[in-house]
Design a protein around this nucleic acid. Structure first.
Lengths: 142, 142
DNA sequence: AGTATATAGTTGCATTATACAAGCACTTTT
DNA sequence: AAAAGTGCTTGTATAATGCAACTATATACT
C-alpha cells in the first residue's frame, strides 16, 4: 500500500471524526441528543428490540442503554411492550411522536450533509458513499 | 443531488463515526489516551502553541486543554516554555519522549488502517483519501 | 501615570456519559 | 424443586468536559 495514501487517510479520518463530533455535539438544538438519536436509529433500522440486543448492537453497557431507553420512554418516543412469552423481556417500539422526532432530526442531518456537498458532482458523492460503505465493512471483517 | 447517495452518506458517516470511536476507545493500550494523542498531534502539526490557541483549534474549553496539558507535562511529553515577551503566556513544546510516544501511537494507527485496507487497491485508497480530504475541507467552507 | 479593560492560564464545582457490580424477577436446565 | 442463567434496573465510581471565579499580566484610554 502506498505510504502517502495511508498517511493521508490516517490524518483525514482523524480530522473527520473530530469535525463531525463537534457538529454532532452542537446538534443539541432539538430534543434529541446523540445517544438518543442513535438508539432511535437502531430501532428504526433493525426493528423493535430489547435493551440487551440494543446494547450488544451498539457495544454499550446494558445499564447505559437501559437508562437511555428509560429517557426515551419518559419523553414518549418509545413504548415499552412486555413480551407475553417472557416476563423478563420487553421490546422498545417507536411511538408516532418518536418517529416524527427521529425523522425531523434525520432530515436536519441530511440537509446539513447536502449543504456540505453542495458543490460536489453526483459522481463524487456516489463514489464517496460507496467507499465509506466499503471501509465500514472492511472494519468489521477484521 | 441524488437522494439515494445522500442517504447512503448520512448512514455510512454515522456508522463510521461510531465504529472508529469504538476502536479509538479500546485504544487505551498505550499511555496515550485519545485527548492526549490529539493534543500531541496538534502540537506536531502546527508547532508549539499555548493553551488558548490549542483550545481554539480543537474547540475545547480552555480549562479542559489546560488540564490535558498539565497531564502531558507531568508525563514528560511536553515542556512548558514561558514566553519572554508576555508573562502570562507559555507555549507547549514536544519533548523527545513526547515525540517518541506520539510516533509510536501514530504508527499503531497506521498499521491498523493498513490492516483494514489490506484488500483494497491502491487506486481505491487514493481516491478515498482524496474524497475524505475534500469532504473535510467542504465542512470548513460553510 | 493611573485606572479600566482584556487576555492567558488555573482551579473548584457541577454535569454527563459511561462502566461495573449488586440485586430483582423471571426462565431454563438438571 | 433447586440451581443456574437471562433481561433488566439501580447504586456507585470514574472520567471528560464546561462554566464560573480567580490570579497575574498586558493593553487601552483618559
Amino acid at each position: 500500500m502506498d505510504k502517502h495514501s495511508l498517511e493521508t487517510l490516517e490524518l483525514e479520518l482523524a480530522i473527520l471524526i473530530r469535525r463531525v463530533s463537534l457538529i454532532t455535539k452542537c446538534n443539541k438544538s432539538g430534543t434529541l441528543d446523540k445517544a438518543a438519536y442513535l438508539l432511535l436509529h437502531q430501532i428504526t433500522s433493525y426493528g423493535s428490540a430489547g435493551v440487551k440486543a440494543l446494547a450488544d448492537e451498539s457495544h454499550l453497557d446494558i445499564s447505559t442503554v437501559s437508562r437511555q431507553a428509560a429517557s426515551l420512554e419518559q419523553k414518549g418516543y418509545v413504548d415499552r411492550i412486555s413480551d407475553p412469552l417472557d416476563g423478563r423481556a420487553c421490546s422498545l417500539q417507536l411511538t408516532n411522536l418518536g418517529t416524527k422526532e427521529y425523522n425531523e432530526h434525520k432530515q436536519a442531518r441530511l440537509d446539513k450533509i447536502a449543504d456540505i456537498l453542495k458543490n460536489w458532482s453526483n459522481e463524487e458523492c456516489e463514489v464517496f458513499g460507496q467507499l465509506l460503505q466499503k471501509y465500514n465493512r472492511s472494519i468489521i471483517d477484521m
